[in-house]
């Protein structure tokens, strides 16, 4: 990859759901966006802890963003469709800002395998990870 993507461009393809969750691009790491949200009632599960679904939503957005950025470098018009997601919860998320970063493991002709992890204070201590499979398709009619 030659140039880092513009953060504004990444925010440009964030869906309304990301805004509803207060998800923003915190910074770029090796050209990929580190997404984040602050703790608040909108992401609270049991009192004092992050909701598992909220963490999952953040990681899923990070995975999609990482894939979009990676794909955009080669085939900007390709469509991506999530097929499934597997989430592992490792630690309870506390009342703190939460970060997530996606990583594209492989892009094939039809399928992309993407991982993401979420953390709070220390990136080396993830609170949760996801694996996702995406179907890739060309926007051109067959």
């Amino acid at each position: 990859m030659s140039t880092d993507p513009d953060i504004a461009a990444i925010l440009g393809f964030m869906p309304p759901f990301a805004e509803t969750m207060g998800i923003t691009v915190d910074h770029l790491r090796n050209g990929l966006p580190v997404m984040a949200f602050d703790y608040g009632p909108h992401v609270m599960g049991r009192p004092g802890f992050l909701h598992g679904g909220a963490m999952s939503g953040l990681m899923e957005i990070a995975a999609i963003a990482a894939l979009r950025v990676t794909v955009a470098a080669e085939e900007p018009a390709v469509r991506i469709k999530p097929v499934n997601i597997t989430i592992s919860f490792m630690r309870g998320g506390r009342e703190a800002r939460t970060y997530a970063l996606g990583e594209v493991t492989r892009i094939g002709r039809r399928v992309a395998n993407v991982e993401a992890k979420a953390w709070q204070d220390d990136p080396a201590k993830p609170i949760a990870t996801i694996f996702m499979n995406f179907l890739l398709s060309s926007p051109r009619p067959a």
Binding site: P15, F17, T20, M21
Partner: peptide
């Protein structure tokens, strides 16, 4: 509308399905 994942189609994001 707040839960939409794709503005063009109006389809819900998948994140809220996980939470549900």
């Amino acid at each position: 509308d707040r839960l939409v994942g794709d503005v063009e189609s109006g389809i819900l994001a998948s994140g809220p399905i996980i939470s549900l």
